[in-house]
Simulated scan of single mutants.
Amino acid sequence: MLSVSKEFTFEAAHMLSEHEGECKNLHGHSYKLIVEATGDIQNGMIIDFKDLKNIVKETIIDKIDHSFIYYNSSKDDVEHKIAEVLKGSGKKIFEVNYRPTAENMAMHFYNILNDNLKDKGLKVVSITLYETQKSFAKVVG
């Protein structure tokens, strides 16, 4: 199988409600997202890297970069208050219905991109989401 990959970076803050460690506190990450896709080769390419870049930026990066990732079912009242203040101030939030762990975010991105790439006859092979330089979650399709 032949595939193509493209890397993206974004900055975001979150907090993990009910976490026993330091990640229960509001904190941020410099994320790195690696998208790997496959499909039939046409004119020598699976997909133009520019087209892949545009799809990922439009569906994920532009929405999440420099945002507060807000878990809308959090059991932490502080998280809801932070989101309320940010929304009321016109600040950027990325609202999700899951705990914003690297694992859950990687799966979410995998699903979003598979839905958007299938129209082009492509399939996501894997999504790798680095939360730090040495820690990442990977979804393999």
Rank of each mutant, 00 (worst) to 15 (best):
V125N: 13
G121W: 06
S17L: 00
D76W: 09
G39Y: 00
T59F: 10
E18R: 04
N25K: 13
G39Q: 03
I46Y: 04
V85F: 02
Y110M: 09
D51S: 12
V124P: 05
Y31H: 01
S17V: 05
T128Y: 00
K6I: 05
K50W: 08
D62Y: 13
V140K: 08
D115W: 04
V35Y: 00
S126I: 02
E7H: 06
A102Y: 03
S126Q: 14
V78S: 15
L129Q: 05
T132P: 02
F109E: 09
Q42T: 13
L33Q: 07
K138Y: 15
D65E: 15
N54T: 09
E58C: 04
Y110G: 01
S126D: 13
K87L: 11
T128Q: 09
L2I: 03
M45C: 10
D65A: 02
S30T: 01
D119Y: 08
C23Y: 01
E18P: 01
K50F: 11
M107A: 09
K50R: 14
A102R: 00
L26E: 00
G90V: 13
G28H: 12
I82C: 15
L113F: 00
T59L: 03
F10E: 14
S30V: 03
D76H: 14
V140Y: 10
E18Q: 13
E131N: 03
N72G: 00
E79Q: 13
K24F: 01
A137Y: 09
C23T: 03
S135W: 04
L2S: 04
C23S: 01
Y110Q: 07
I64F: 02
N25V: 12
D48M: 06
K87G: 11
S17P: 11
S3Q: 02
E11C: 12
V56R: 01
H29F: 14
V35N: 06
